[in-house]
């Protein structure tokens, strides 16, 4: 998977959790909670969904990496290399 694939996956899953959120103008480095008005439960569900899609654990301690699009893409790409599905 390329970084583009991870980016598309994150945006797709955000869309499933918050269909009304406008991800088209999401800044790479913006906190997704602020930019898209996601709450703790939304972030929880995003991590659950990404973990299921990629068939790999995302440890709770790493969840802060997922709070920006750029951070999420980098983190998932790195982790996926060492935990391939």
């Amino acid at each position: 998977m390329t970084e583009q694939d991870f980016r598309a996956l994150i945006i797709e899953e955000i869309g499933n959790i918050a269909p009304e959120a406008d991800t088209s103008r999401l800044n790479d480095d913006a906190d997704i909670r602020e930019a898209l008005d996601l709450d703790s439960m939304d972030v929880f569900n995003l991590v659950v969904a990404l973990s299921k899609r990629l068939k790999m654990d995302i440890p709770d301690i790493d969840v802060p990496h997922m709070l920006t699009l750029s951070g999420g893409v980098t983190y998932l790409a790195e982790r996926f290399k060492s935990h391939p599905a």
Binding site: S40, M41, F44, V47, V48, S51, D57, I58, D60, I61
Partner: peptide, 17 residues
Amino acid sequence: LAAYNSTRLPDERLMLS
């Protein structure tokens, strides 16, 4: 909560609320 969640998969974790 951190200790509880550290040993569990994402959909088995809890939130502070």
